[in-house]
């Protein structure tokens, strides 16, 4: 099974969190607002690309409706079953490791 890094995990989760609008810009906004980290465009796109090449993410192009995009298409992102599996596995590992710590250390 594919191994994923922390940022890759965050991106996977952010795509999953978008539900109706799983687009790159929304993912980026979510990461910036809720994960409290500055995300450069290049880093996000490269990560998406890497996730896609690992088979964890897929996308399809859809024509944009809004004039704000100047007619450029949008990428609708999907997390594949393998991607979900990878996210779950990461979560399990993290939980297992946090479990061993008392409340003081986790605080």
């Amino acid at each position: 099974m594919a191994k994923i890094g922390e940022f890759e995990l965050l991106v996977l989760l952010a795509i999953l969190r978008q539900r109706d609008e799983p687009y790159a810009n929304r993912v980026r906004e979510d990461l910036e607002e809720n994960a409290e980290r500055a995300v450069t465009r290049g880093a996000l796109y490269r990560t998406l690309d890497r996730l896609a090449s690992k088979g964890l993410v897929e996308w399809e192009l859809e024509p944009s409706e809004t004039p704000e995009r100047g007619g450029h298409p949008m990428r609708r992102l999907y997390v594949t079953e393998e991607g979900r599996e990878a996210a779950r596995a990461s979560r399990d590992v993290l939980l297992r490791f946090f479990d061993g710590l008392g409340p003081v250390e986790t605080a």
Binding site: R41, R69, G70, H72, P73, R75
Partner: peptide, 17 residues
């Protein structure tokens, strides 16, 4: 590529914002 075009779109969208 299509993805490249979508990146331009993403950027333009943020620009308008």
């Amino acid at each position: 590529t299509g993805a490249a075009a979508s990146v331009l779109g993403d950027l333009e969208e943020d620009f308008v914002l």
